[in-house]
Design a protein around this nucleic acid. Structure first.
Length: 104
DNA sequence: CGAGTGACCGCAA
DNA sequence: ATTGCGGCCACTC
């Protein structure tokens, strides 16, 4: 029953995400099993465990999530607390800060 | 239980 | 460069 597994995988990946790195919905979705299920990742973020650091998830361009609770400003503040700078709703040095999965 | 929703991604006009 | 559309799949109503 791989239906609920997807959410578990995604949450595990997020929980193992280093504090000083960011990742994309697409990457998480791909690691969880479906490369194009990035929407599901967003959905899980919306309805899933709020304790996980969802603010480290950005879109493919490194931009902040639009539908984030409170708007991109909140996410920018959370990222700043993790030492990640954002300009114009985009992560600075995004390609450099982008998390590289190790457990392939 | 069925249909709709969505914090996205990639490609076609 | 922008706009539009399909697809992915768990979750809510």
């Amino acid at each position: 029953m791989p239906n609920a597994d997807f959410r578990v995988r995604v949450e595990k990946i997020i929980s193992q995400l280093p504090a000083d790195k960011v990742t994309t919905y697409g990457d998480v979705a791909a690691l969880a099993g479906s490369a194009y299920a990035s929407r599901v990742v967003g959905g899980i973020a919306h309805y899933g465990n709020p304790e996980l650091p969802w603010h480290r998830l950005v879109n493919r361009r490194g931009g902040l999530a639009v539908g984030f609770p409170g708007g991109p400003d909140v996410q920018r503040q959370l990222l700043l607390q993790d030492g990640i700078q954002c300009i114009d709703n985009k992560v600075v040095n995004f390609e450099d800060l982008r998390w590289h999965p190790n457990f392939l």
